[in-house]
Amino acid sequence: MGSSVQPSAWQIQRDVIYALLVREMKTRFGKWRLGYAWVLLEPALHIMVLVTIFSLIRDDFYPGVPTALFMLGGIAPFLFFSHCFSKGLAAVVSNRGLFNYRQLRPFDAVLSRVFLEFAIYLAALVALLSVLAWFGVSTDFNNFLLLVAVNFFFFFFCLGLSLALCVVGEKFPEVAKFSPMLIRPLYFMSGVFFSLEQVPKEYHTYLVWNPLLHVIELTREGLFTNYQGMFGDLAYLGFASVSTLAFGLLCYRAYWRDLVRSQ
């Protein structure tokens, strides 16, 4: 019984990821009419809340950058991160049925989800920038290459994190219960609605350990000419990204069979 021509490993990987993306798009957006709109609505609502609060506190929140844009630069990356976090934790449980096909392992589920979240994040960022510019809220654009570099590192940071979390979520399901408790403080510590220079100096040494803070600072620096991103460190972000990815891949490599094996 001669086996017919086997497709190459890359071909299989490509087909699987593509099929997963198509499927995720359908289940994510197809269910209700607001599906696609929610991509924009979620960050937009966050921004509205924050802008309302901080406009009341101070007229000129950050000199030279409109408050709405300032918040957008923090919220969009943070939402991507927090989606990856929760999706990563649930990656194995919610895709159990998919592992009925041998070419589809948790890695593919995680990769396609992070990829889709990343695409949604970029699309939402661009769309909301355009919408705000349409209404006259805009400022000088700074550095496209910096944005590319930041998002390149950010993507692999989130991929590594999600891979590690998909192992954690399966081995210690209790952790999933604590995830809001982990995410919420990060919201306040990552500079979503402040810039590091607005924080007293003595806290800087602690806050700068957070790679997410660097992502947000650097994103704002890339977006706005008037933003002084003197604390964002691309080298540190690169280092955090590579080490997180290595850690995530190691975790996955060590435990992936346990994720799908019946115990």
């Binding site: 071909q11 087909d15 593509y18 099929a19 198509v22 499927r23 359908k26």
Partner: peptide, 15 residues
């Protein structure tokens, strides 16, 4: 997912 979507997905992962 509908039957059609499921079949499309299985076809997809098999190239």
């Amino acid at each position: 997912m509908t039957g059609r979507e499921n079949v499309a997905f299985v076809c997809g992962i098999h190239g």
